[in-house]
């Protein structure tokens, strides 16, 4: 029974972690397909979101009624954080990436520089120590502890918010003009341009959406763990693993990949319980190995399949 209990606990935790990874991987995948390069600054964009939310929360304060243990002020701060992150991404795109004429590998390397600058600026302001939101930590929800599941209301809030954002994105992609243009551009930029779609505008919207979701992911990551200048960079490879598993360029693939990779990372401690000598400290390493295997066996990812694609 111990195994079942551990399984349930890890699965519940994995669901929360996966929602955060999904928010990160959707943005990375969108930017990968529309801007055309692997954005190594995406992890640090999440960090920007987390700290922007932290500052906004400090200004707004924990006033108002609370939902799932989170004051209304937090959600206001979250929205501000998302907007700030999107703005930071737009400014970066305009100042750094736009003037370059060096191909996707050059952009990839440049994005590493951008990542360092984000992290340096955050570290100048907040030092390298970790912080947390000024919200009381909650005890695990009682009725669930019986089953071995230890999650707090905050965790539930993270999952619900992530699902809301993801559904919102789905509606946007499927049922709005912008969404159709984005899908067309991701699919075939030249054809899209020829059909009269203003690619530049679509590109900018991609950055706004991708960075905004990453910002939300970062804020939730800060709520789930702690805020630290390295928090986003540490998750970057896990997010890459999710995007590659899902299939680069596919938003729905990124969601599925995020869920799977998040679960793999969270479930790793289970391996030693069932007798495989791989400890929890190898969780991320396992995700990277899965990533390399996917690249080898099926570089187009899960969603590359005609049937399962979105």
């Amino acid at each position: 029974m111990a195994v079942t209990e551990q399984f349930l606990e890890l699965a519940a935790n994995g669901l929360v972690y996966s929602s955060i990874i999904i928010l990160g991987s959707i943005g990375l995948s969108l930017i990968y397909s529309i801007a055309g390069f692997a954005n190594f600054a995406h992890g640090d964009t999440m960090t920007v979101g987390a700290y922007a939310t932290l500052i906004a929360f400090g200004a707004v304060g924990g006033a108002g009624f609370s939902i799932l243990g989170l004051p209304l002020g937090f959600f206001v701060a979250l929205v501000i954080g998302i907007v700030v992150t999107a703005a930071v991404a737009l400014v970066t795109e305009r100042l750094v990436y736009k003037p370059l004429d060096i191909g996707s590998i050059g952009l990839l390397i440049t994005s590493i520089g951008v990542a360092f600058i984000y992290r340096a600026l955050i570290q100048v302001q907040f030092s390298s120590d970790s912080r947390r939101f000024d919200i009381d930590r909650l005890r695990p929800i009682e009725p669930l502890v019986e089953y071995g599941i230890r999650i707090t209301k905050h965790d539930i809030a993270i999952v619900i918010s992530a699902v809301t954002l993801v559904v919102g994105l789905h509606v946007l992609l499927q049922h709005t003009d912008l969404g159709r243009k984005m899908r067309a551009t991701a699919d075939n930029p030249d054809l899209a341009r020829a059909s009269g779609i203003r690619i530049r505008r679509v590109e900018l919207w991609t950055w706004v959406l991708g960075a905004g979701l990453a910002g939300a992911g970062g804020a939730f990551l800060g709520l789930f763990n702690l805020l630290a200048p390295r928090m986003g960079f540490s998750e970057l490879l896990v997010i890459f693993a999710a995007v590659i598993l899902g299939g680069i360029g596919s938003v729905y693939g990124a969601m599925l990949g995020g869920l799977l990779i998040g679960m793999i990372v969270s479930m790793t401690p289970l391996l030693s319980t069932v007798g495989i000598p791989i400890g929890g400290e190898y969780a991320a390493a396992l995700a990277f190995i899965v990533m390399v295997l996917v690249l080898l066996v099926r570089p187009e990812g899960i969603a590359g399949e005609p049937v399962g694609g979105g």
């Binding site: 370059l100 060096i102 390397i109 520089g113 600058i117 340096a120 600026l121 570290q123 100048v124 390298s128």
Partner: peptide
């Protein structure tokens, strides 16, 4: 003046170097 630790300043310089090299002398 801005007081800076060595750590972030180092990151900042390395980041700026990458971006400036890619922009002006790839």
């Amino acid at each position: 003046s801005i007081v800076l630790d060595a750590g972030p300043l180092r990151l900042l310089l390395i980041g700026l170097t990458i971006i400036l090299v890619m922009r002006y002398r790839p």
